[in-house]
Design a protein around this nucleic acid. Structure first.
Length: 892
RNA sequence: GGGCUGUUAGCUCAGCUGGUUAGAGCGCCUGCGUCACAUGCAGGAGGUCGUAGGUUCGAGUCCUGUACAGCCCACCA
């Protein structure tokens, strides 16, 4: 191994290698330890057809940051990965492929051959996304990986189905369901997306059967008229009262249908009269039931017109619409048309307009199952982060209707219902029955339909742990701790896992649900295939590294809200990684000898520490509680920001700069101490950053000296905790004052236009405490402000007249002008400072003169304000006394 | 129709339970090839915190109205 990190930060050089080392050593696999607390996350299983996208990258980063954090905190941590069979998506994808390659259709292949092909496809491509997830650094336990159609999960699905059936919560029936003519399957309510489309109302006159006036109705779907079975009017609608009970003729069709009174029609809408089409509209279906109306279908499974549509039979539904409207118009039945925005249902997969159809399907009775799921959210057993998403969950469960779970597909869990070939009797059973309970027959035919994909994924939190068997894993890791997912998936999955788990396991499947938003493009648009604006995470990883991508995703998010992706953000995360890389390189360079052995490092002897050492250790130590609290509350962006600040603005900008003087000096003892602090600080920082940037931190770690009893990997080290022994308030104050003074001198130098390389001398006039601190900090000033001398004046009279100056609370800083030679700049600076301080002083005075404030505000706040005022006054006074001197010089 | 979110520097966003001079990254301006890093260093400019009221000693932060942007839910012909 090399002695030090390579000069350039190149994540490609080590990310894969490190992942491989972790995985092959079993670093992600927890050893069940009853004395430890478990921490469990179930990975939302990506579709096997899926390609990694930015949404996954965010989802994975969140899960990994919490898994790594909890693991370091000492929890027995399981993050269980897996994939979903994604019934429709996969079936469509495979069929498309076969069609393209062999020209064969689903029917050509037959069920058995198709399934064989599907499994082959799964074997060949199904693991693709796993490889991609590894690139992100996800520390999930691949030895426990599951697939929603593997043997164990199959068993779980069948078991759950049978139990629900036995409880009377699953039934089969003919209902109006959402039908996707392209997918050729029923859909559940949430698989239908509502889109507003520009369309029309067509007003048609239905002439009276008795030759009377008839009635005019508006419709947005004229092609369904062949299925009309009545015209409904509101019983309170005076316009139509006299027509109720009469019949009208379906134009051109000639069928006679009744005019009925029903509360459903809204007199304000359209003409107030509604055509009733039970086979094509849920409301109409209900009306039909109330009035005992027949159901007539006119559109088939592929959205073509049926025989009932007469001469239009065989036409596509939308072609028929055109022809039919033209014919009605020609015949004089079209009264008028009106442009209108029509709410339309689309298939969430293929965006085909969904056709409501009467069809025999399997349903889950939802009310009794939904109620206990609502309860766990109410009691806090299930907790949403952010909390507002609970409302969405509640609302959906409160309004829930029965769940259509059967799909007319082949790829999926076949419904465990069997029909006796002899008498047709249906048996729902865990295995194919031998004997028909009704007729004693032995031949059975299994239900053709498969289950909704989500029927299996709802069991994911416990089926993956072995349920329905009572396994050790299930016992120990269930219920899980946190579920991480996007808000778009709350209904599809989160709510369903909740009710399935409450039903089978009698508890919530997880304590917290962490909801995140979508990753959008730089313009704020949703990343989508159709827009072609998607960014491939793998390309980003290749260019900037997984650590940079993760850090960008994790630091750019407010909980629950969307995030905009931009290359600039990843680039700045990469720059941060590069910064850490080089700081570490600096440290390691100073830690090792030529031959790679470590130079002597001071032990834990605090007496030897210098103020800057104590400051560094104290600053890190002080922020631990905050950072940890942020991590516990899923506030990763806040934690990341603090860690970034510590590494860049404290460790790199100040500590390393201060360390240089000592490391390049001759004092061996000083060097040993500096090395000690460098290592101690860097190690703590690497631990803090590790959950966010696992690769670079692990890589750097491997170059640092190992302590006795150290773990194999940084990922197994302990999360840092606050140490009261490292609280050095006085040293922190000293360093902070020194930093302010250094900045002030740098500022004077820049404003005066003096070269950075030019050494300056400064005179300090300071109060007692400040002077002590500054004396302790003299070497820092010399080095970091590039000075040749620092001298302390005991009073104004000792300060040279011609200087540029700066005022800090309790300190005046003077740089003699003969070293700077720029009165104008000094005058401008002083004037500006005078104005600023005058404003501040009057603001503070007004505040403190306010009786209300003084009498009501807490004592601490008031004394704070008083102190501020005193500081401002002090500083202002100094400025005011300097001003005339400089002015005089200017005039000369 | 119901519900939710956002509106803070040119851009992307922080700002926790109301209390230092409202912050960061990127961009911009001025210097700097200094031996960890130019993927960098030092310094700097830039904000009436959408708008109108209210509560309070004190409001970016709480309340109400309002405008704009966006999202979700919903069986309106």
């Amino acid at each position: 191994m090399e002695n030090n990190l390579p000069k350039n930060y190149d994540p490609r050089a080590f990310e894969d290698r490190i992942y491989e080392a972790w995985e092959s050593s079993g670093a992600f696999t927890p050893k069940i330890d009853k004395t430890q607390k478990p921490f469990t996350i179930m990975m939302p299983p990506p579709n096997i057809t899926g390609q990694l996208h930015m949404g996954h990258a965010l989802d994975q980063s969140l899960q990994d940051v919490m898994t790594r954090f909890k693991r370091m905190q000492g929890y027995c941590t399981l993050w269980l990965p897996g994939t979903d069979h994604a019934s429709i998506a996969t079936e469509v994808k495979i069929l498309d492929k076969i069609k393209a390659e062999e020209g064969k259709t689903k029917e050509d292949l037959g069920r058995e051959e198709f399934l064989k092909r599907a499994w082959d496809w799964k074997k060949q491509y199904g693991g693709r996304i796993d490889t991609q997830i590894r690139k992100l650094g996800s520390s999930c336990d691949w030895s426990r990986e599951r697939f929603t159609m593997d043997e164990g999960l199959n068993k779980a699905v069948v078991e759950h189905f049978c139990r629900l059936y036995e409880k009377g919560l699953i039934y089969k029936g003919s209902r109006l369901i959402n039908w996707c003519p392209v997918c050729g399957s029923a859909l559940s309510d949430i698989e239908v997306e509502h889109v507003d489309k520009n369309g029309k109302y067509w007003y048609f006159r239905y002439p009276g059967a008795d030759g009377g006036e008839g009635i005019t109705v508006a419709t947005s779907r004229p092609e369904t008229m062949f299925s009309d079975v009545a015209i409904a009017v509101n019983p309170d609608d005076e316009r139509y009262k006299h027509l109720v009970g009469k019949t009208v003729i379906l134009p051109l069709v000639g069928r006679e249908i009744p005019i009925i009174a029903d509360p459903y029609p809204d007199p304000e809408k359209g003409t107030g009269a509604v055509k009733i089409t039970p086979s094509a509209d849920p409301n109409d279906f209900e009306v039909g039931l109330r009035h005992g109306l027949p159901v007539i279908e006119c559109i088939d499974e592929s959205a073509h017109m049926m025989e009932t549509a007469g001469k239009y039979a065989g036409m596509d539904r939308f072609e028929c619409r055109k022809a039919w409207v033209a014919d009605l118009d020609a015949a004089g039945y079209l009264v008028k048309t009106e442009d209108m925005v029509i709410p339309t249902g689309e298939c969430y997969r293929c965006h085909t307009v969904v056709e409501p159809r009467i069809s025999e399907q399997w349903f889950v009775k939802m009310k009794p199952i939904a109620e206990p799921a609502l309860k766990i959210a109410e009691t806090g057993e299930l907790n949403f982060v952010p909390d507002r998403f609970r409302k969405i969950y509640d609302h959906w469960l409160e309004e829930i209707r029965d769940w259509c779970i059967s799909r007319q597909l082949w790829w999926g869990h076949r419904i465990p219902a069997y029909y006796c070939e002899d008498c047709g009797e249906m048996v729902v059973a865990r295995e194919e029955p031998h004997t028909c309970p009704k007729c004693g027959g032995h031949k059975f035919r299994q239900e053709e339909d498969v289950l909704d994909t989500w029927f299996s994924s709802q069991l994911w939190p416990f089926s993956t742990l072995g349920w329905p068997e009572k396994t050790e894993d299930l016992e120990y890791f269930f219920p899980t701790t946190t579920l991480v997912t996007g808000y778009d998936i709350i209904f599809f999955w989160v709510a369903r896992m909740a009710f399935a788990s409450v039903d089978e396991m009698k508890c919530s499947p997880f304590k917290d649900v962490l909801i995140h938003g979508l990753v959008r493009d730089a313009q704020g648009r949703k990343m989508s295939k159709s827009l072609g604006n998607g960014i491939d995470p793998l390309d980003v990883i290749d260019q900037y590294g997984a650590d940079a991508l993760r850090f960008m995703l994790l630091s750019g998010i407010a909980p629950g809200s969307d995030i905009r992706y931009s290359n600039d953000k990843v680039e700045s995360a990469r720059n941060f990684a590069n910064k850490l890389w080089n700081a570490s390189r600096f440290a390691i360079m100073n830690l090792k000898n030529e031959d790679g052995s470590f130079k002597p490092i001071a032990g834990e002897d605090t007496a030897r520490l210098m103020p800057e050492d104590r400051w560094m250790l104290s600053v890190i130590n002080d922020s631990l509680a905050d950072i940890t609290a942020n991590m516990e509350k899923y506030e990763y962006a806040l934690a990341a920001g603090k860690i970034y600040e510590l590494i860049w603005n404290q460790f790199c900008d100040w500590y390393i700069e201060l360390a240089k003087g000592r490391l390049y000096g001759d004092d061996e003892k000083q060097k040993e101490t500096t090395r000690f602090v460098l290592v101690k600080a860097l190690k703590a920082l690497l631990k803090l950053l590790h959950p966010f940037m696992p690769f670079i931190t692990e890589e750097i770690w491997s170059f640092l000296p190992r302590e006795e009893g150290a773990k194999d990997f940084l990922m197994h080290e302990s999360w840092p905790v606050y140490d009261p022994a490292l609280d050095y308030a006085e040293d922190v104050a000293t360093l902070e004052l020194a930093m302010d003074a250094i900045k002030a001198v740098r500022n004077i130098r820049a404003e005066a236009g003096a070269a950075p390389s030019k050494k300056l001398g400064v005179v300090l006039l300071a109060g007692e405490t400040e002077r002590k601190r500054l004396e302790a900090a003299e070497s820092y000033l010399l080095n970091l402000a590039n000075l040749h001398s620092v001298s302390f004046a005991s009073g104004k009279e000792e300060v040279p007249e011609e200087t540029m100056s700066a005022a800090l609370p309790g300190v005046e800083i003077y740089v003699p002008l003969d070293e700077l030679l720029d009165y104008e700049a000094e005058y401008a600076r002083l004037t500006k400072e005078r104005d600023r301080l005058t404003t501040e002083v009057s603001r503070q005075e007004a505040k403190l003169a306010n009786q209300n404030f003084v009498s009501r505000a807490p004592e601490k706040v008031i004394s704070n304000e008083r102190e501020k005022l005193a500081n401002y006054k002090d500083m202002l006074e100094k400025v005011l006394s300097r001003l005339p001197l400089v002015e005089a010089k200017l005039k000369r």
